[in-house]
Design a protein around this nucleic acid. Sequence first.
RNA 1: GGUGGGUUCGUAUAACGGCUAGUACUCAAGAUUUUCAUUCUUGCAAUAGGAGUUCGAUUCUCCUACCCACUACCA
Length: 506
Amino acid sequence: MSKTRVRFAPSPTGPLHMGGVRTALYNYLFAKQHGGDFILRIEDTDSNRFVPGAEEYIIESLRWCGIFPDEGVTPDGKVVETASPEHPHAPYRQSQRRSIYRQYAEQLVASGHAYYAFDSAEELEKVRTEAESKGQTFIYNHLTRGSLRNSLTLPPAEVERLLAERTDWTVRFLMPEGRVVEMDDLIRGHISVDTATLDDKVLWKRADELPTYHLANIVDDHLMEITEVIRGEEWLPSLPLHYLLYEAFGWQDSQPRFAHLPLLLKPVGNGKLSKRDGDKLGFPVFPLRWTSPAGETSRGYREDGYFPEAFVNLLAMLGWNPGTEQEIFSLAELVEAFSLDKVGKAGAKFNPDKAKWFNREYLRMKSDAELAALWLPLLKEKGVDAAPTFVESVVALIKERATFVQDFWDIASYLFVAPTEYVQKDVDKFYKPEVFAMALEAMEASDADTLEAYVREHEMPMGKVMNCIRLALSGAASGLAIHDIMRFIGRDESLARLRRMQQKLG
RNA sequence: GGUGGGUUCGUAUAACGGCUAGUACUCAAGAUUUUCAUUCUUGCAAUAGGAGUUCGAUUCUCCUACCCACUACCA
């Protein structure tokens, strides 16, 4: 049995979407579980849609997630240009493989599985709009190919002439008539499709001497000895064509098995997750922050404060389940537990609340020292220069209250700097000058313990007094325990803050 | 329109054709906490509809409805 080899083959037409990351992840998990290889291939066969920086973004995203390809891209993120023992099928960027596709397209023409088409974009556009005006849809297939300009309808001499003179012809697949393609999907089971409903897809374009997705994909999967193709559900409709291509090439014996993953859907309403949804509902749809060439910025999980482990974990659970009640998985545990037959068929709606929950869980699992190290640079940005050990002890106190490291400052800024203002609502509710004066007096006279005794002795409402003091210390009536705050800022600073509030509020 | 795929609490999902349809997130209530948060307990909440097969259907079959994808010289 041949070694498991799977690939993730994104197109650098923009930033990698979280659904794309999930596809990469499932491929990676499948490969590693079977002791196989995970290959990263860049499918840049559409020169018009190339977006600068997209490829680097994809590589960096996978690296952030801890997904390292065995082939195609080295761990340092470089696309391998030339073949080597480690990367026997290099290059892995389809634009650099340009020269190998044409012969395969020609092979199909020679064997009668494809033909040359000379219809210009304008001509096709015209028949398309004509059909539309009659309420029909134009399809380039067995019904229409006979009346269009191609090597099936033109005399051979004319074909030769056009081939030589024109540079805008294409090679189209000759979709057979009256056949039912029987297919198997690792997730969906058996599927059959009548070829009469399919069209003659363009396989190769003379204009840029590049194949389209379908040809490049099949040829490269074959050449790279891919054993399983795990991709998004949007590819399911082209599976019959892909089956037929393997057959036309005579490669059906080594044809990979296919698995079509359910789509990731938007949290509300219907439809697949899009960039807009994230902006509208306040969560990232991209792993990393992305700034488009036009200067438009989209948020990323990394910049929003998600841990890569949490991101990978939540992605893994979107469409797959372990069959047990375990929800927290490390990448290594996922490799162990993953299985394609536990992948669901229905699209999964993304739940931002659950995503946050995952991050909270991972934040709690991290050590205080680890979190302090992550927080330190953020503190520095705030102009706070605190000792790591101090920060660490603060983290220990507050980590249960946070979802992200970024939350730490909002939760505990007053342990580093005195509050400059007080929450008005809390002032209205808790600030009573007489009570406050008494509390201050008692604190000046002794310590917190006797304050508590004092409050009890005078039968003052504990909550009221405490919140009044908390207000002075932290600027709000909610938050950490008074004695914790005082322990961190010290008695002198505490008293200073009390006096400051008294002075400010009267 | 055509083709294909899909449908269990609001969401993610579990359930050899067989327990009261389970779990997590969210939400609500209670307990704990000097406040808030945490934590703990409890609760709300689902098999799209209709036929059929069967002793028995969330599970198998068919029909209907709805949703999604695809329908480019894009991937």
